[in-house]
Simulated assay, not measured.
Amino acid sequence: MQFQQLAYFLAVAEARHFTHAAERMRVAQPSLSKQIKALETELGAPLFSRARGNVTLTPAGEALLPLARRMLADAETARREVAELAGLRRGRVRLGATPSLCAGLLADVLARFHGDYPGVELQVEEGGSRDLVRDLARGQLDLALIILPLQSSDPSLVTEEILREDLVVASAVKPGRRTHMRIDELRGRPLVMFRRGYDLREATLTACRQAGFEPRFAVEGGEMDAVLRFVEAGLGVAVVPSMVLDGRPGLVGTPILPGLRRTVALAHRKDVEPTRAAQAFRSELLSFLVEASDMGTLSPGIEALAHRRPGENS
């Protein structure tokens, strides 16, 4: 079995068309078909059904697909890891993060890391925790900032809690700002709700249901920036992390009683040691949080849980 054969198999599996896959891989279609056939012969089972011109995966192909994705991703990681041995002059960090972290904390950390390691390529994938965990398992990410607890525990991941933050009710600025509110005061109020798959959507729904009511949506389905803009426009209120309100003077955040909080963790695969570039990013992130906590510059409502390991740079 060769990596090239797996790459051809993956291209056909994704395109569901041999000619289109060959064009994507920049190889002659007969050569691609020959390599797929050789792979099928070695594995002892057909990988594709070609009935009536339709290309579909056989059960053997379905079983191989996630393994091929992971093997190719790990091979690419290995190549880059070797290239990184020259003092991190080169390398890559593939980082996943939830939209609220991308809108808040992450930009400052990425800027600092890029200043220290300008030759390291940074790739950021924005998504919900479930999507990020899936991408980690497939080998498509090196690290991910996710929200705990996960809806289903994944023994293949290592998670490290790095911060805890308050969730607040975001609303348009109005006179007579309140110091706090109870979750049951959202009963009957129009809410601006995130799309399905957002951790914040599930946290809001769970809190409301535990208080004995179903929330009423004014509008739903937005990403973080859209939700905040809708709130600024007066469509309703939204439950958001406190950090995303920095730099938005048109919004105020009202703390919720009893305290509604969430925990952010840094995750990576247990079976693959993070690359040197990924380890350097982790150290940079923890240093940033520790220093910001010591200096009191973290946004209100954020508690750093991170600690440097002995010997890490300050």
Rank of each mutant, 00 (worst) to 15 (best):
F3L: 15
Q4W: 06
V12S: 00
A13Q: 03
A15N: 05
R16Q: 10
H17K: 08
H20K: 15
A21W: 04
A22K: 01
S31D: 13
S33G: 11
G44F: 08
L67V: 13
L67R: 14
A68E: 04
R70Q: 15
L72S: 00
L72C: 13
A75M: 11
T77W: 08
T77H: 07
G91C: 02
R94L: 12
G96M: 05
L101F: 13
L106N: 08
A107E: 11
F113I: 05
F113G: 01
V124Q: 06
L132K: 07
R134D: 06
Q140C: 12
D142Q: 10
L145S: 04
L148Q: 01
P149T: 07
L150W: 05
L150D: 01
S152Q: 14
L157Y: 13
R164H: 09
A170E: 00
V173M: 12
K174M: 13
R177M: 12
R177H: 10
T179Y: 06
I183S: 09
D184G: 08
E185R: 14
E185S: 07
L191P: 08
L191M: 14
F194E: 10
R195H: 12
G197P: 06
G197E: 14
Y198P: 02
D199A: 13
E202Q: 15
A207G: 11
A211I: 05
G212K: 04
F213M: 07
P215V: 12
R216E: 11
F217Y: 04
V219Q: 02
M224G: 02
A226I: 09
V227T: 01
L228Y: 04
R229P: 05
F230Y: 13
G236H: 05
A238W: 02
D246K: 12
G253M: 08
L257G: 05
P258Q: 08
P258S: 12
G259K: 03
R262G: 10
R262V: 11
V264Q: 00
H268I: 03
D271H: 04
P274S: 02
A277F: 05
A280L: 08
S287E: 09
L289C: 09
L298W: 00
G301F: 06
E303R: 15
P310K: 15
N313G: 14
N313F: 13
